[in-house]
Design a protein around this nucleic acid. Structure first.
Lengths: 230, 230
DNA sequence: CTCATGTCGATACACCGTATTTTACTGTTA
DNA sequence: TAACAGTAAAATACGGTGTATCGACATGAG
């Protein structure tokens, strides 16, 4: 009975690990948004039955948490920031860019505590920037205030981006001319300030306005650090 | 042919309107979170077939938009605010309280442009608070910065609340003692600043820390208003 | 009274997350 | 070496989802 007689044994199951699972999920989300991530599709992309995944995650939410943590690796500064302001500003901009690369991140941002290893590393690096500059409570307040800002700002920016993509018009153009509903609403005269804003407002690019708001908030944090801790 | 011969005519379909649909959806969401809102359940609660709803909304997203707009009615100030700071601060706190009453709002907050009638009214009232105090671009920047802050802050607060509810422990207690994963991570020594924060940080109640961050941001806006428009 | 119209309900489809059962293979022991 | 126990994977199954389609039917027009 030579080797040639015996049939090749059935292929052993594809080896799997969280890394591969998360990578597949991220790829799907990058291509088609969070809604395109289903356990079945993730599994299919790995040539595996859907139930295989439950050895590595116990719920779909778990998968989302892993995806967020995966992307948070992109948020660590490349080199040690010079001061707290640079640290927070850098984090804000990196998060924003990550969310533009992976729009689904905007849907998840702030939705659950980020306790994965990368999330913790980001928190650590950020908090550490305040070492010796402020008491812990103040440092935490600073970090939380700034991240609340950029979470909200990024969500709004992505929301607008999607709306624009869906209508094919910039929000401003749409309000100004093409959106019949909006035109009608503004024409009622019930929203004079809004109408003026739509009509006379300058169209600034999103990055600039993100940075402008961020600078205000960072200024506020600076003032808060200077003030005596309450 | 007496009345008794003729069968009673079939009951006319239940009259329906968006108001009733949205109310049913909000009730479901209040009870069981956004996930508990399905078109079938909404329809069932109105004694109606699921497809009936498609006369009033054309997609589930539409329903969410209507729900958000519905709740935004709760965000209008009861009386005309004295100044812009009061206007923004009031809006922030009302939004926070609305999100604590309707936790699902946190999931939707900032997720899509809010263009419903109530959303527009809120925007109008808020923008109007800057009438005569700043050029439109500055006013918009102020409003957007503050609302980015409270969007992010509210999301985080609700996220924590849920996590605490799920584990039965406050985040701090959990990190400090009971969460084996967190304990292990902090014990690695890779997160000294974080460990210190968890260990030595003061536990402030959420409303206070929301208000504190908000005050910082409002201070920053005040400074931005004072500065000459770039 | 008949017919066109448009609305409503039922049915159907494709997909979802996940529990449960079945299968197939491994390594262990007689 | 043969039977077996244990385990990991696969298949199947269940109860749900959003929404398209289609047939029935009440209503208003001629």
């Amino acid at each position: 009975m030579t080797v040639w007689d015996r049939p090749e044994p059935p292929t052993r199951p594809v080896p799997l690990d969280r890394e591969r699972i998360v990578a597949a999920a991220v790829a799907l989300a990058d291509e088609g948004g969070l809604a395109a991530v289903s356990l079945r599709k993730v599994a299919a992309r790995l040539d595996v039955g859907p139930m295989r995944l439950y050895g590595y995650i116990s719920t779909k939410e778990d998968l989302f948490d892993l995806m967020v943590d995966e992307v948070q690796a992109e948020l660590l500064p490349e080199e040690r920031p010079g001061d707290w302001r640079e640290a927070l500003s850098g984090l804000a901009h990196r998060t924003r860019r990550a969310a533009l690369r992976h729009e689904w991140l905007a849907d998840l941002l702030g939705g659950r505590p980020a306790l994965g290893p990368n999330g913790l590393a980001v928190a650590e690096a950020t908090l550490a920037a305040f070492d010796g500059l402020a008491d812990i409570d103040t440092a935490m307040r600073a970090v939380e205030t700034v991240s609340a800002y950029f979470t909200g700002a990024i969500r709004r920016e992505v929301a607008r981006l999607r709306a624009e993509r869906a209508t094919g018009l910039s929000e401003r153009d749409w309000q100004r001319a093409a959106g019949p509903y909006m035109t009608r609403m503004l024409a009622t005269g019930r929203f004079p300030a809004l109408a003026k804003a739509v009509h006379d407002g300058t169209d600034v690019d999103p990055e600039t306005s993100f940075a402008a708001g961020l600078d205000w908030v960072l200024d506020a944090v600076a003032a808060g650090l200077a003030a005596p801790p309450a």
